[in-house]
């Protein structure tokens, strides 16, 4: 045990481990609180779709030789998040079909551009790293950490300040509009926040696994709690715990960070499902 503690203390003295834990906690927190809204609005797979859009944006930035691909990636993701979330009930291509179309289209075009205008010496490595996260979370620079902290504070602050409006728009958008709430504006805010979270989360778990960060904590919380506030709080706590445990396990065991975090989320869901079945859920 003392050997494990000594090893843990030694590992924590590496700056990239501390950065990974800070960013991992913040991303898990942000993705989980928005995840509840997305799951309830039946947009669970939007994380997957937008992450593929972010991949396409990253590919374009890479082809154009941008030093920092985050601004262009964020711009593309925000635009498509707004298009997908604000298309509304009158859209000709609705919900899951729109997400699927945007998702596979962005992935294909992004990979095609990277192949044709290859500026990297290791194309497959870059693509694999973006899709699965690899050790991206463990190779962050201090600037990226500060940016992540700033964006996370923004996301959480907006969620807390607009909690009642987001709650109303999530559960009954038509009623919200009827009572004078500017539902379109709040959907616009939600879309921007989701885009920011997706771009940040790509560093943690990669494009293909982002949906897990969004979906699993919310669904786990819904097995036990029934009220929106309880589900949101428990989802946030659970997501942070799973993210911490996943990163630490990956660091100590040498496993891929993204997959390990998702595996921990799955175990947590199973436990919450069992607890919900046994105790019947708490209102």
């Amino acid at each position: 045990m003392s050997e494990f503690i000594n090893k843990a203390i030694e590992y924590f003295e590496y700056p990239f481990v501390r950065y990974a834990l800070i960013v991992g906690v913040l991303i898990a927190l942000c993705s989980s609180i928005l995840g509840v809204t997305l799951v309830l609005k039946r947009f669970s797979f939007i994380g997957d779709g937008l992450s593929h859009v972010a991949f396409g944006g990253m590919a374009i930035a890479s082809v154009l030789n941008f030093t920092n691909d985050m601004p262009l990636t964020l711009l593309f993701t925000v635009i498509f998040a707004i298009v997908l979330l604000m298309s509304g009930k009158n859209a000709k291509i609705k919900g899951d079909a729109a997400i699927a179309m945007v998702s596979v289209g962005s992935l294909a075009i992004g990979y095609l551009l990277l192949n044709i205008f290859n500026t990297s010496g290791n194309l497959s490595g870059d693509v694999c790293s973006t899709l699965f996260g690899s050790t991206s979370i463990l190779t962050l620079t201090p600037t990226e950490v500060y940016l992540c902290v700033g964006l996370s504070v923004f996301v959480v602050a907006v969620f807390i300040l607009l909690y009642n409006r987001i709650f109303a728009v999530t559960f009954d958008e038509d009623f919200s509009k009827a009572t004078g709430t500017n539902a379109d504006f709040y959907n616009f805010i939600i879309a921007i926040i989701i885009a920011v979270i997706i771009v940040l989360a790509m560093n943690l778990v990669g494009s293909l696994l982002i949906s897990a960060l969004v979906i699993f904590p919310a669904l786990s919380a819904m097995r036990i709690f029934k009220s929106f506030k309880s589900v949101t709080v428990f989802s946030a706590v659970l997501s942070v715990f799973c993210s911490l445990l996943g990163i630490l396990t990956a660091v100590f065991a040498g496993t891929p960070v993204g997959s390990t975090i998702v595996a921990v989320d799955i175990v947590a869901f199973i436990i919450c499902f069992a607890v919900g079945k046994v105790f019947g859920g708490k209102r």
């Binding site: 700056p15 501390r18 800070i22 913040l26 500060y146 902290v149 959480v156 602050a157």
Partner: peptide, 23 residues
Amino acid sequence: SLLLVMAFAFSLCACGKSKETAD
């Protein structure tokens, strides 16, 4: 709540101040 969140976020940032000492 907002102040608590910001305090949480900035307390995490403070970990970086000990980077040089840790290194």
